[in-house]
Design a binder for these strands. Structure first.
Length: 544
DNA sequence: ATAGGGTTAG
């Protein structure tokens, strides 16, 4: 399709009130802008899903573990399994001995990082693994592995472990990097301590990590992503002279306002950006476009998008070069229009992008599939799934999860399970979300056994560790039947989640405790209380 | 891993 026909279509539109700022006359445009805008067949505690049995998930005569010989690629899987199976004591020396037996002399950083990521949802084990490696004389740790460990210590809210890791990394001649400070800032922000995040940033040069604009930008980004846009902005004001802001700086702040659905503020930032002589980028426009949808300003989004197209067609490379919609803009449109209930328009934009010479990506298909699942029928979403496969795209885990969720929501549990199998067959590893979706819906259907069964299989080879959501879903489900055995299962889940570094909400903990007391499981209840005592530091900060 | 595009369920 030629630009001419589009042009005429566009010129028929009513006069726009919203314009993409043009560099030629930034002021005038912006002035008009800123105004607006296991199968427990028999629920017997002895018949728990494997992970709840006292350790040892694969018995050695399990045929599935004996088959395939270890390959380069599943080395991280095998090692992570070994760490999880390593029972009993938390002495790094014991595990260090096993590791030095089990494995190569060399522990390349990539391998270590992959194992740690696999163990991510068992923070204590992941840290034990890393500390054990540090005991091997030949081990040369990498900064990236220290960063992962520091991140985990922060997530486990263990400042002592964190300080120790910082000390150890210095000892290995690895000063903290900008990434390290980003991790720490993010932890402070998640804990509701923005001032500490800022102070940690200010301390960087003193700790051997020089400041620059990019480190400043990442602090602003972390502040904005945790909704402290005002704070980010005043920090920018205060330090403007030390860190001369660039387009990214302004994009970060604009995005912060957009996340709070305050598009007028985002437009003000845009104006200030242009006033200080910084040219908005395509990212800037995509941020705004998404912002309009987030704020429910569908008409504004449509108008903004059409201005992007209109200006993008101009020959003038300065005013048009950076606002022609790209695949991200189109994906934003497909997603936004669909969520707003305008499926026809969404599909139209999807088809139009190809005419415009912009090929959809996997995320574009994901956006379309998601909105069809939500506002249309899963059947149609699967047609799009088939279409993308036919065109040679490889669906990723997000794609599968969307279809599986759609099927679950439509009550098509069996078909959802078939998609899980298909996912494995196509060697797209199911992730924890995949399992969470299926477990949740099985439980909602009243098929708690099926949920527990999935919980049991998710830990198998090529599986993944449960996270907080997994435990929350299953523990809640244990209260739908009024069986004493279920309380024991719930209690074991609470014990296991705490051992893996996940904090149950106070409400959940007390509910399980009461359940155990009411069903005559005083002993187990006492054990949980003792555990809570041991984890006092954790228990005190039970999430709100 | 310096910014933009896909995942709760209600």
């Amino acid at each position: 399709m030629g630009a001419a026909s589009l042009g005429s279509r566009n010129s028929n539109r009513k006069q726009s009130t919203l314009l993409v700022p043009e560099l030629a006359t930034p002021m005038s445009c912006l002035q008009s802008l800123s105004g607006q805008l296991l199968s427990l067949q028999n629920p017997n505690p002895n018949c728990l899903p494997p992970s709840l049995l006292p350790l040892r998930r694969h018995s050695s005569n399990d045929p599935t573990t004996q088959s395939s010989p270890p390959q380069e690629d599943d080395l991280p899987v095998l090692i992570a399994d070994a760490v999880l199976r390593h029972s009993g004591d938390d002495d790094p020396r014991t595990l260090a001995r096993s590791l030095s037996r089990l494995s190569p002399n060399a522990w390349p950083p990539a391998l270590v990082d992959r194992v740690m990521k696999r163990l991510w949802n068992d923070g204590p084990r992941a840290l034990l693994f890393f500390h054990s490696l540090l005991r091997l004389p030949s081990f040369r740790p990498a900064a990236s592995s220290f960063d992962l460990a520091i991140d985990l210590a922060g997530r486990l809210r263990d400042p002592r472990a964190l300080r120790r890791l910082l000390f150890l990394r210095q000892h290995h001649g690895l000063p903290p990097t900008p990434r390290t400070f980003a991790i720490i800032a993010e932890r402070h922000l998640a804990a509701g301590k923005p001032d500490r995040a800022v102070r940690s940033f200010l301390s960087m040069p003193r700790l051997g990590c020089p400041h620059d604009l990019s480190t400043f930008n990442s602090l602003l980004d972390a502040l904005c992503k945790s909704r402290r846009v005002e704070k980010a902005f005043s920090l920018l004001r205060a330090l403007k002279n030390r860190f001369l802001p660039d387009a990214i700086t302004y994009n970060i702040i604009a995005d912060g306002w957009c996340r709070l659905k305050r598009t007028p503020k985002a437009l003000e930032v845009l104006r200030e950006m242009v006033d200080s002589g910084i040219e908005p980028t395509l990212n800037t426009y995509n941020i705004l476009l998404k912002g309009f949808f987030r704020a429910g300003q569908i008409r504004e989004a449509l108008e903004f998008f059409s201005q992007m197209k209109k200006r993008g067609r101009k020959k003038n490379p300065i005013s048009g070069g950076n606002c022609r919609p790209d695949v991200v803009s189109y994906t934003t449109m497909v997603h936004g229009l669909g969520l707003a209930g305008q499926l026809d328009k969404s599909r139209k934009v999807f088809d139009e992008m190809v005419d415009q010479g912009c090929l959809p990506s996997v995320p574009t298909y994901n956006a379309l599939i998601q909105v069809i699942c939500k506002k249309g029928s899963v059947k149609d979403a699967i047609l799009v799934f088939d279409e993308m496969v036919r065109k040679g795209y490889t669906p990723n885990a997000v794609t599968y999860n969307l279809v599986i969720r759609g099927l679950c929501h439509a009550g098509e549990m069996d078909q959802a399970m078939e998609f899980l199998e298909r996912m494995k067959r196509e060697e797209c590893e199911p992730n924890v979300q995949t399992y969470n979706i299926l477990i949740r819906y099985w439980c909602e259907e009243g098929e708690i056994e099926k949920g527990l069964q999935l919980f049991g299989t998710m830990l198998g080879r090529g599986g993944c560790l449960p996270n907080l959501d997994t435990y929350n879903v299953l523990i809640s489900a244990m209260f739908t039947r009024k069986r004493p055995e279920d309380m024991v299962v719930a209690g074991k889940m609470v014990r296991e989640m705490v051992e893996r570094g996940h904090l149950p909400r106070r409400f959940m903990f007390n509910r399980v405790l009461n359940g155990l007391l009411l069903t005559g499981n005083q002993g187990f209840a006492r054990e949980l209380l003792r555990m809570q005592d041991r984890h006092k530091r954790l228990a005190r900060v039970v999430r709100p």
